[in-house]
C-alpha cells in the first residue's frame, strides 16, 4: 500500500494546544456544526413551503428555549467561521502570516464573532415577535 509510505502529519495528541491552533480546529468544528445547522434551514424552508401547519411546527421548535439556545450557538458558529474564513482568505493571498499578526487577527475573529452574534440577537429581540 502506497498510503503507508506517506509522511505523517504532526500528531495532535502530543502537541500543546496554542491559541492559533485552537482557532484553527475551531474553524473545522464550526464548519462541521454548520452542516447540521444547514439541515435546520432546509427544514424551516420546506416547512414554510408545505404550509402554515408545518411552519408552525418548525416555529414551535425554534421558539422553545432549547431551540433558542441552539440557534444562538449556530449564529456564533456561522460568524466565527465567516470571520476566520476572511482571515484564511488573507492568508491565501500571502498576508498575515507573521506570528504577532496571526495572534492579533485571531483575537479580532473571536471578538468580532461574539459582537456580531450579540448584535444579531439584539436585533432579533426587537423583531416582530421578540424572543420566546
Amino acid at each position: 500500500m502506497a498510503q503507508d509510505d506517506r509522511p505523517l502529519s504532526p500528531h495532535l495528541q502530543v502537541y500543546r494546544p496554542q491559541f492559533t491552533s485552537v482557532l484553527s480546529i475551531l474553524h473545522r468544528m464550526t464548519g462541521v456544526a454548520l452542516g447540521l445547522g444547514a439541515l435546520l434551514l432546509v427544514y424551516w424552508l420546506a416547512a414554510a413551503a408545505a404550509g402554515p401547519q408545518w411552519f408552525n411546527g418548525a416555529r414551535a421548535v425554534a421558539g422553545s428555549w432549547l431551540g433558542w439556545l441552539v440557534l444562538v450557538g449556530f449564529t456564533w458558529a456561522l460568524f466565527y467561521h465567516l470571520c476566520n474564513g476572511i482571515r484564511h482568505l488573507f492568508w491565501d493571498i500571502g498576508m498575515g502570516f507573521d506570528l504577532t499578526v496571526a495572534r492579533l487577527t485571531g483575537w479580532c475573529v473571536v471578538l468580532a464573532s461574539l459582537a456580531l452574534t450579540g448584535a444579531a440577537w439584539v436585533v432579533g429581540a426587537g423583531g416582530l415577535g421578540g424572543l420566546p
Binding site: 414554510a48 404550509g51 402554515p52 411552519f55 408552525n56 416555529r59 421558539g63 444579531a120 440577537w121 436585533v123 432579533g124 429581540a125 423583531g127 416582530l128 415577535g129 421578540g130 424572543l131 420566546p132
Partner: peptide, 11 residues
C-alpha cells in the same frame, strides 16, 4: 440580518 428581522415571524 434578514432572519434577525424575521424573529418570531409567522407563516
Amino acid at each position: 440580518a434578514s432572519l434577525a428581522a424575521l424573529t418570531g415571524a409567522g407563516h
